Amino acid sequence: MSGKSSQLSSRAGLEEAAPHYHGHRERLRSRFNEAGSDAVTDYELMELVLFRALPRRDVKPLAKQLISRFGSFAEAIAAPRPLLAEVDGLGEAAITEMKIVAAAAQRILRGEIRRRPVLSSWSAVIDYCRAAMAFSDTEQFRILFLDKRNQLIGDELQQKGTVDHTPVYPREVVKRALELSATAIILVHNHPSGDPTPSRADIEMTKEIMEVSRTLGIAVHDHIIVGKDGHASLKGLKLI
C-alpha cells in the first residue's frame, strides 16, 4: 500500500471512530450562538451545560432525564444536590456545572434589584426571590433589608426548616435590621409544596414582625411567598 493510500485509510478510520454526538454538539452550539436561547428547548439548554463536564458522552439522554424528573431547566439546576446525585450518570462534576449556572442566574438577578429602588422594580424582586428559593425542597425564610431610599443593602437567608415549617423569631428579625441600619424590610419565604397560598401561620407571623418593627421605626413593605406554581404577596392580597 502506498503512503498516500495509508494516510487516506487512517483518516477514514478516525472519521469512523469519531463519536456520533460530536456533530450534534457543534450544531447545537451554532444554533444557540446564531439564534439565541429561545431557539433551544429546556433539555437542549441542559445539554449545553453538561457538555463541559461530560466531554466524552452523549448527554442528550441525561439532559432529557433531568427535565423529565424535575419538570424544567430552572427546577433541575435549582434541585438539591442529594436529589441530583440520585440521577444515574450525573456525577459531581456535572452537578457542579449546574450549580454554577444556578448561582450565576441568582447573582445577575440580585444585581438587577441592587441598581434601583426595590419598590420601583418589583418584577425583578419577584424573579430573584423565585430563582433563589422557589424550587427548594425545604422551607426557607429570607429577608431583604432596605435603606431609606428603598435600595437593597442586605439580603440574608435567616432560617431553614423542614418541608412545611420554618421557625421565625420576630425580635431576631428586627435586631438584624437594626444592625444593618435598615429602615424597611421585605420578608420572603417559600412553600416547597409549590402552592404559594399564604397559611394562617404565615399571616400571623407577619403581623407579629410588623408589630415589633413598627415600634422601632422599621417598615415591613411586604411578605412574599414563592413556590413552583407562582408567588403570593400578602400586601397584594390585603392580608397585611
Rank of each mutant, 00 (worst) to 15 (best):
A232T: 00
T162M: 10
L180W: 13
G154Y: 01
E208R: 09
D58S: 12
Q65P: 04
S233I: 02
R27W: 07
S233E: 02
V212F: 14
D38S: 13
A18P: 02
A132Q: 13
D202N: 15
G3Q: 15
R115S: 12
R130Q: 00
K175M: 02
G111H: 10
L152W: 06
A12M: 14
A76R: 03
A17Y: 07
S72V: 02
S181Y: 04
Y128C: 00
P82N: 06
Q151H: 14
K99R: 14
L50Q: 09
N190M: 02
V125S: 01
Y169P: 02
H189T: 06
L109N: 04
K160L: 07
Q151N: 15
I113N: 01
S233K: 05
I108A: 11
M210A: 14
Y128A: 02
K148L: 06
A182E: 10
S9K: 11
L109Q: 10
I240F: 12
A124G: 09
D229S: 00
P61I: 09
E75R: 08
W122K: 04
R200Y: 08
E34N: 13
Q106C: 06
I143S: 04
A105N: 11
G230N: 03
I126P: 03
F135H: 03
N190P: 06
I240A: 11
A103F: 05
L216H: 12
D42R: 01
N190D: 01
G154K: 10
E204V: 08
R171Q: 01
L187H: 07
L84S: 01
I185A: 08
D222H: 05
G161M: 12
S10N: 15
E86V: 05
E139H: 00
L178F: 05
A85C: 04
Y21N: 02
T138I: 15
A94F: 13
T138Q: 13
V59A: 10
D127H: 00
R27I: 14
D195E: 01
A79M: 00
H221R: 09
S121H: 15
A184N: 05
R56W: 08
D222Q: 07
K235Q: 06
V87Q: 06
A53D: 11
P19S: 05
V188P: 06
A232P: 03
S136K: 13
K148F: 09
L178V: 12
D38A: 14
K228W: 03
I143P: 11
T206W: 05
R200S: 12
E44L: 14
D164G: 11
L48W: 08
R57W: 04
T183Q: 04
